[in-house]
Each structure stands twice: as C-alpha cells, then as structure tokens.
Simulated assay, not measured.
Amino acid sequence: MLRSMYSGISGLRNFQTKLDVIGNNIANVNTYGFKKGRTIFKDLISQTVAGASASGDVRGGVNAKQVGLGSQIAAIDTIHTGGSTQFTGNTLDLAVAGDGFFQVGQINDGEVENIQYTRAGNFYMDNLGYLVNGEGQLLVGVDGVEVTVPVDPATPDIYEDADIATVTPIDPTTPDATRDALSRISIPTTAQSMSIAQDGKVTFVDSEGVLKYAGTLVMAKFPNPGGLEKVGGNKYQVSPNSGGAVYGEPTAQGIGKVESGFLEMSNVDLAEEFTEMIVAQRGFQANTRIITTSDEILQELVNLKR
C-alpha cells in the first residue's frame, strides 16, 4: 500500500509541474517572441518481483514480473516553432522569418559584452540614436561606413554599391571569435527617415536628404536552440547543450530574413493549452484517488485488530 501511495505522490508532483508550465504558457500568450514549454514524463525504476526465464524443451518462457514505482519529469522542452506575425507599421518592430535570434548586449570600452539572444523584435531608438530594446540593451550589428549617396527613387538600392561590411560565418567551436567584429548601430537623431531591409541593412535619410548606410544587423543561430536557457525578459543565454552561436547576416546561413514593421507573436495555442490543462487536472485527480484509496485500505487493515 505504501508503494502505491508514493507512486501517487510522484504523480501529483509531476502533474503540478505540468500545470505550472501550462500556466506560464497561458500567461505569455500575448508576449512577443515567446516560445512555449512542454512537460515530458518518464517512469521511475521498476521493482522486479520475479525475473524472466527462457523457454525450454518442456515449458515456454516466462516474462518478468515488475511493479512500477511512479513517474518523474523527463524534460521540460522549449518549443521553438515560429509564431504568427503581427503587422505594426513601425519600422523598428522586427520579426524573424526563419531561424535566428537578435543579439542584444552592452558596450564596454568599445567591446560588446553580456550578449543575450531574443526573438522579440520590439526595438527603439534612444536619445543618442542607438537601437535598443525595452531594457536599454543595445541591438548588436556591425558599424556602417560613412557613405553619402543622393537619394534616387528610381534606384532605391543604390547604397549597395557602397563599401558595406559583411559578416563571415565562423567556426562554431570558437563562437566568441567574431565578437571583435560586432558593434552597435546608431541613427542620427536628425534623420528624416530610416529603413531596415530583409537582409538586415539599416539605412537612413539625413537632414539634407542624403541616403546613408548605418550598419547591418548580425544575428545568431544555434545547433540546438532548445538547449538555450531562458533568462527572463524574452531573452536567452548560451548553455552547454545549446552549442556555440554561429553569426551571420539575415537571409544567410539559414538565419532567416528580417521583416520590418512586424512583430512575432507567441507560439502558444490556447486551445492546445486548455486541453492539456484538462488532461493534467484529471491526472492530478486520479493520483489523489490512488492516495485516498490506499489510505482507506490501510485503515481497514488497522481495523482488523479491533
């Protein structure tokens, strides 16, 4: 009886964890760039009452007799499927169509530090013209060169003839090697307008009506994005199982293109979450019945002495 009670307790704990994950998913149904979690169970070690035996000349084989001792959490996965995109019309709202993460960090003595990764593309321009997220972390890219090209509506891509930096993909075994290529992107506060192309190139029209190149976004891709660790604020950090970041420009190396004026919504499906919540609730109730039934049987055993 005690064995069945402890099996029921393990089930209660696991379904409580599953409900915690579901609750977090539902709470973030409208969080930009959020990736839902999923709880996976596995059984605990089984107690072998009798071992298996092979068949012989007289008798056939006999299977082992085993009694399970409950369940435990096998994994809590982060599902990195893409969310739907929402049109905002804001130039600095960016969505990634494909794999890849935006990089945000801070600059110390010209070096990019404390890089974190995000799919939430709601960026802003601070008082100095730097592109930042809602927490003030700088959007990482490569600096633009000083290029002045008259704006010609007939040739909107004329800036591509300028000396635009290109980020070369690196060896993933040395993921920090390109960080010395990395910097921040700034737009003059006097700029009349700006645009971000699908390949991550940022341009703006200055106060004199001249088109200038400001820089290119540098994005990151991982061998195992499910291995990234959530650090809050819609951001992730590298873990031992995520693999090193491979850097590149949007549309290259399978990173995906950047859609300006859009935001990626959460990939949480409410219908799925409510269904899973019902299953978890019933599983929790069933395990409480195991405990109460075992308790009633133990009570009957105690009453035998009366």
Score class of each variant (00 low, 15 high):
residue 5 M to I: 09
residue 182 L to W: 04
residue 233 G to R: 07
residue 230 K to M: 09
residue 175 P to S: 06
residue 34 F to K: 01
residue 224 N to A: 10
residue 163 D to L: 13
residue 227 G to P: 03
residue 152 D to S: 12
residue 219 M to H: 02
residue 300 E to M: 15
residue 121 G to H: 01
residue 147 V to N: 14
residue 222 F to S: 02
residue 238 V to T: 13
residue 119 R to K: 14
residue 208 E to R: 05
residue 150 P to S: 08
residue 260 S to H: 03
residue 248 G to Y: 00
residue 103 Q to Y: 05
residue 127 N to Y: 05
residue 200 G to T: 06
residue 212 K to W: 11
residue 241 N to R: 14
residue 55 S to F: 02
residue 82 G to Y: 01
residue 83 G to V: 00
residue 179 R to G: 02
residue 206 D to W: 08
residue 8 G to W: 00
residue 129 G to C: 10
residue 134 G to Y: 04
residue 151 V to E: 15
residue 246 V to C: 02
residue 147 V to Y: 11
residue 7 S to E: 01
residue 24 N to Q: 07
residue 240 P to N: 13
residue 76 I to V: 14
residue 166 T to M: 13
residue 155 T to E: 15
residue 223 P to Q: 12
residue 216 T to N: 15
residue 169 P to A: 12
residue 83 G to F: 00
residue 119 R to G: 06
residue 151 V to C: 09
residue 219 M to C: 11
residue 107 I to R: 04
residue 86 Q to H: 07
residue 281 Q to S: 11
residue 242 S to Y: 09
residue 188 P to A: 02
residue 15 F to P: 04
residue 233 G to Q: 09
residue 229 E to Q: 15
residue 206 D to G: 08
residue 299 Q to P: 04
residue 223 P to H: 02
residue 190 T to V: 14
residue 56 G to C: 07
residue 98 G to Y: 00
residue 33 G to S: 06
residue 209 G to Q: 10
residue 286 A to R: 13
residue 142 V to K: 05
